[in-house]
Design a protein around this nucleic acid. Structure first.
Lengths: 144, 144
DNA sequence: TGTTGTTAGTTACAAAACCAACTAATATCC
DNA sequence: GGATATTAGTTGGTTTTGTAACTAACAACA
């Protein structure tokens, strides 16, 4: 009301980022949610295992900046769906190597392709320069 | 493993957007959460009323793309904190005009300044061109 | 050896979000 | 006028998330 500047909600970066993030997340969610009843964290865990190979829950936490409870629950859910298996390690029984099953691999590959297609479609709306700036900015903001 | 392309999680826009959005949201959250025990939706509703003046819950839903149940609960919370009041309209008793109280105005002004400062600090890490591209891209993505 | 500390992962409880059904007021149209 | 539809907003119940406390395995070091 009595504000003399023109700082608007849409100018507020956390808001703008959230709106954009939500729009894309909701759009892509259909891929894994409708088909496989997966949650976002499950999809991320699946992605990590599919893309980078077997690893422990801890490694997934670190790489994806996910909290260990989230990962723990996602792993259990994926296990129940028969998308991954656990293999306790001999050297240190606290660790368990998580690996996708055949079925998990198939699902991963499908979603991976869907993700790439979605990303390509989204990116095609911008020039190469814009894409570059956008990615660099997001990267920089994320690693604060 | 057997992927021949180099499409990475960090290349996936929904992921990159989410990471950035979460980082900034969590960082700014301190401002309204610690000081006033407010939730994000409450902060958004407060912002709308403070920045654009009195309006109904419906209008806030539309402008902020928030679901009505979220707004309904945020309004009640803000009311209990004595930050806003409801005034049922004579012409249509379904509508209630929501307006900030004196106290609500004070809180808004403080958070508004904090938001502007936060945004300025964040934006200062980029060149004017980058800022411009970033905002335009986010805008475009959000309005899909 | 045994005490203390650290790490990986789970569980339990509380907070928050989501969705669907609901109430109350108004609009429509016969 | 009265049945039906629509709209604003609320409530209830389920799902999901967040937080903190917990277990189990290992490490360090006296």
């Amino acid at each position: 009301m009595s504000n003399n500047t023109d700082f608007d909600l849409r100018d507020f970066l956390p808001y703008a980022l959230n709106q954009a993030a939500e729009a894309t997340s909701l759009a892509f969610q259909k891929q894994y949610r409708q088909r496989y009843g997966m949650l976002r964290t499950e999809w991320r865990v699946l992605f990590h295992l599919g893309r980078y190979g077997a690893m422990t829950a801890k490694e997934i936490c670190d790489r994806a900046s996910l909290h260990k409870t989230k990962v723990s629950r996602a792993v259990r859910a994926l296990e129940q769906k028969r998308f991954l298996t656990r293999a306790p390690q001999e050297t240190d029984r606290r660790h368990e190597a998580l690996a996708l099953t055949k079925q998990g691999e198939v699902v991963f590959r499908e979603l991976y392709e869907a993700a790439r297609a979605y990303d390509t479609a989204l990116a095609s709306r911008f020039t190469p320069q814009e894409r570059d700036v956008l990615r660099r900015c997001l990267q920089k903001i994320a690693e604060m």
